[in-house]
Design a protein around this nucleic acid. Structure first.
Lengths: 126, 126
DNA sequence: CAGGATCCCCCTGGATACTG
DNA sequence: CAGTATCCAGGGGGATCCTG
């Protein structure tokens, strides 16, 4: 079926899966400021467990969105940085943020309206 | 923390949560063609269970992205259609598809390279 | 036809402790 | 410092059956 193709074969789905991932986008945004160390990321992204951070970083690295550089030092030093491919994602993330900021009020108003069925509205949303 | 604000308060996160949802985007894309009935959607989106379809539709409706119209007929007839807000999402989805199509090859190449560590590369991805 | 209700399983992801 | 290993609870989501 067409939808099946959409759901599995289609590039969008694969990208969606990564974009939709909670931490991936957060990491990409953090790295927009420049290369960061593991610990720096774990501190800046509050609430992320080491497991999830590592997992997220591996996923992004596998997709070629970030690069991982190990410096031959003691103590170990590892930097993560956006690749060119990763940087190209920033536009998309930016567009997403823009849409969000532009329409979040409408969305929240819709939610309130939906959650309060009895209340009269001055206009219909459809 | 800043990341906390990002993760919870920030509009982007809320939109991300919806965008990232497997079925939501699929439904929105389907509805881009025009209003659709429940059954039509369930057929076109292969693999979706009634439960998830309903849940997805409710979520989109709650966010004001789609409208639900019940026709007073027997058998029941319910149409779902994008709202103006929902339609404005199409641009974003379009941008996403565009990015995906444009870069999916790079991503897949990166994945192959990542999964085959021994292999020599002609160029570095960073 | 368009779902609601229920059961249940699995997998995500958090917490914690440990290591090269 | 930069992770890995392990354990474990919660919830997402499928399958199924039922109804206005």
């Amino acid at each position: 079926m067409e939808a099946s193709a959409y759901a599995k074969n289609c590039p969008s789905r694969q990208i969606l899966d990564r974009i939709g991932d909670t931490w991936s986008v957060l990491v990409v945004m953090m790295l927009a400021d420049g290369p960061q160390r593991y610990t720096a990321l774990s501190r800046r992204i509050e609430g992320v467990s080491p497991k999830m951070l590592t997992q997220t970083l591996r996923g992004l690295e596998r997709d070629g969105l970030i690069g991982r550089t190990v410096h031959a030092e003691v103590p170990p030093r590892v930097d993560y940085a956006l690749t060119e491919l990763g940087r190209s994602l920033l536009d998309l993330v930016g567009a997403l943020e823009k849409w969000a900021e532009l329409h979040i009020d409408d969305v929240q108003a819709a939610r309130v309206a939906y959650d309060n069925p009895g209340v009269r509205m001055t206009s219909r949303s459809l």
